[in-house]
Computed example of a mutant assay.
Amino acid sequence: MAFYGAAAVADGWRTDGENPTPVPSTGLVVSGSAGCFHKEINGTTAYLSVWFPSDFNAPQNPEPPEPTDEYGIEVTGSHDGDAWC
């Protein structure tokens, strides 16, 4: 995550904290977003989300675990304010 966070900041993306959407060490994972960043693009706030499918691996899950070297990146934006990470 450190690499993606540094790359996002270098491109002008901002975050509200060091790890704004951390994955809990116990309990139910409700968001796959390991990092959420935002910046204004053409008058609209855009959101950049970085997530890792392996964060959804659960010890009790009978399915094979997700690989730890895969990631997802999503950028969203909306003029009516409905976009978020």
Rank of each mutant, 00 (worst) to 15 (best):
C36S: 09
A6E: 15
D69P: 12
E70M: 10
T15V: 06
T15Y: 02
P67D: 13
D11P: 00
G27M: 03
E63M: 15
P20R: 02
G5V: 05
W51S: 15
G12S: 10
W51C: 04
I73V: 15
E66P: 01
F37A: 09
P62I: 11
G32L: 13
G72A: 11
F56G: 04
H79T: 14
S49W: 00
F52A: 02
I41E: 07
D16H: 01
F52L: 06
A83E: 03
F56Q: 13
V30Y: 12
G81W: 07
V23Y: 01
G81V: 13
S54V: 06
R14G: 10
G35L: 05
R14S: 14
I41C: 02
G77S: 12
T45P: 03
G17M: 08
H38P: 01
E70P: 00
H79I: 09
D69G: 10
A8Y: 03
W51I: 00
A7S: 11
S78T: 10
L48T: 00
P67R: 14
A83R: 00
I41D: 03
V75W: 03
C36Y: 04
F3N: 11
E66F: 11
D55R: 10
P64R: 00
D82C: 07
Y47W: 15
I41W: 02
A46N: 14
G72N: 07
P64F: 05
F3A: 10
A2N: 10
G81E: 13
D55G: 10
F3Q: 09
D69H: 11
C85Y: 01
A58W: 00
A2K: 11
Y47D: 09
A58P: 00
S33Q: 06
I73T: 14
Y47Q: 13
R14Y: 02
P22F: 10
P65G: 02
P24G: 06
N19V: 15
V75L: 13
G43W: 01
S31Q: 06
P53E: 04
L28K: 12
G12M: 09
T21I: 08
G77E: 06
Y4R: 01
V30K: 10
F3L: 07
A46F: 09
A83Y: 07
P62S: 07
P62T: 13
T21W: 00
T45W: 05
Y4C: 04
P22Q: 08
D69V: 09
E70Q: 12
F37Y: 14
E40T: 14
R14H: 13
S31M: 12
V50F: 05
A6R: 13
D55F: 14
F52K: 01
Y47N: 14
E40R: 12
C85I: 05
P22A: 04
W51E: 08
S33C: 15
N57E: 05
A10F: 03
P67T: 02
P53M: 02
G35Q: 11
S33Y: 05
